[in-house]
Design a binder for these strands. Sequence first.
DNA 1: GCTAATCATTACTTTTTAGTCAAGATTAGC
DNA 2: GCTAATCTTGACTAAAAAGTAATGATTAGC
Lengths: 159, 159
Amino acid sequence: MKISAQEEYGLRCLVQLANLADGETLTLPQIAELEGISAANAGKLMWLLNKAGFVHSTRGTKGGYFLARPADEIYLNEIIKVLDEDVLSSHCDSYTGVMEKCVHTGDCGIRPVIVGLHEIVENALSRITLASLVGNESKVDAMFHQIQGLHRTLEPQRV
Amino acid sequence: MKISAQEEYGLRCLVQLANLADGETLTLPQIAELEGISAANAGKLMWLLNKAGFVHSTRGTKGGYFLARPADEIYLNEIIKVLDEDVLSSHCDSYTGVMEKCVHTGDCGIRPVIVGLHEIVENALSRITLASLVGNESKVDAMFHQIQGLHRTLEPQRV
DNA sequence: GCTAATCATTACTTTTTAGTCAAGATTAGC
DNA sequence: GCTAATCTTGACTAAAAAGTAATGATTAGC
Ligand code: FES
Ligand code: FES
């Protein structure tokens, strides 16, 4: 259960756009610079996010990317769904081993674990907006711990 | 955010072992048959699980695999940690783009999201034993929704 | 119109993950 | 001891994901 590169960087690029003042845009080289990835890679990510309708772009000189909607109306679960190809809906078709479908007939204890995990993650992400991720680490941290129902204070540190 | 093949199949193989009566064992071809994967693949998975101490094995005729501990003392978070290479502890070292470490200095809104998601998943998995996954789909499903429900009821609490 | 800056799209290469194979080691039963 | 069934292990191959490159399209400013 881990975050893919596409989810990670895609999300980070969106946070950069959410950081902009109204009317400002970022070019691919700028995004690449800000996130420490190559411009080509940034281009691919932004292409995906554009197709999915999260950002708009203008071409030509003075062109660039900007959010298609206000950052406080974009929830993380929508973003992750696009960047992650939404694999859940076909779980029993994708991990089939050498068979066509998974071998479990009827009663299966695995399926609800997989589905349940995705529900829990979805549930958490659907409460967080892109806007709330902008430059406020301790705030985001507090929000997550509130969701979990845990009252721990985690010092911000690189992990 | 998705389950890897290793997590999925490894967990499924363990559930098969948890299903055995006391003293029984399963051979690689049997496990492979039950889960619809190749014997070679089952062999690799069981090797991992053996190294990690979840199963024991006996070689030779009449050999096979069995759980090293009672299934109701094995929690899913331990299993997943082994099958998933525990990537969390080095998040900012692994998604570094073209840099050595991630570019964010100080205040970062992404890090707590990643860490928080892993905490939520870990938290859910640490409450479920291998034993509870054996052949009772609706029970497992109910358990997961109870965990989610728990989060919901805790959230509105004021401090 | 021309040019430079920019996004768009597809094809390609590299890296990582998944899965297979083959040779070796161990054991029960004869 | 011999044999057949079994696990063990490292090397190999295949598939998927990640990342790069190259070419084409659009636009602002001159
Ligand atoms: S995982 Fe698909 S039915 Fe068990
Ligand atoms: S993701 Fe590592 S500091 Fe932002």
